[in-house]
Design a protein around this nucleic acid. Sequence first.
DNA 1: CATGGGATTGACT
DNA 2: GTCAATCCCATGC
Length: 204
Amino acid sequence: MAAHPSSPSATVLPVAFYERPVVQVAQDLVGCVVHHGAASGVILETEAYHDSEAACHAYVGLTARTSVLLGPPARAYVYRSYGIHALLNAVCEADGVGAAVLIRALAPLGDLAGMRARRGFVPDARLCDGPGKLTQALGLDLEVHDTSLVDGPVRITPRASGFQDVRLVAGVRIGITKAADLPWRFCAAGHRGVSRPWPAGLLT
DNA sequence: CATGGGATTGACT
DNA sequence: GTCAATCCCATGC
């Protein structure tokens, strides 16, 4: 952090950014930068989830698990998947609406050495090409669940240089069985560092 | 209190 | 292509 003297709060995406329709936020987040400590990466892939459709955890209503999803926007929703992986989501829309954007892939940007150490020295292109991989690379765990994305340990800043006008490729969401036909997955066109399978047209 | 499923990954056939 | 690892929590008896 000492190498970056600029004030973080001045450039962090504000609460109002997240307090919008979740499918819009999912698209706008591609190209933005996630920070955790010295580690950071450019978002290459997102998915939107909303409590109006069955794939969203909040579809079942208010429970201990879904209280954060249904709470105010601009907070981190982190949960464990398959007993092993921590998945990072940004809570969106108004307080009372269950909606979040799942961050599925990053282009590694800051603290590559730390990422390599935490990920076990895989090729750099594979450091953050999946939702469980990127949380491990960033050093995130469930401890950041229900923390602020504006002034908490995890922060997201606006689109990096070279990503202001990023072209998006939409596809269906990955790894779900319910509401599997909604095209709510968004990838940065031309970037191979996204999770498999690549959506049609990614490289064209 | 017991059971089962899941927004994944990596290793293996 | 298949499959197991392994945690949280919703559901049901």
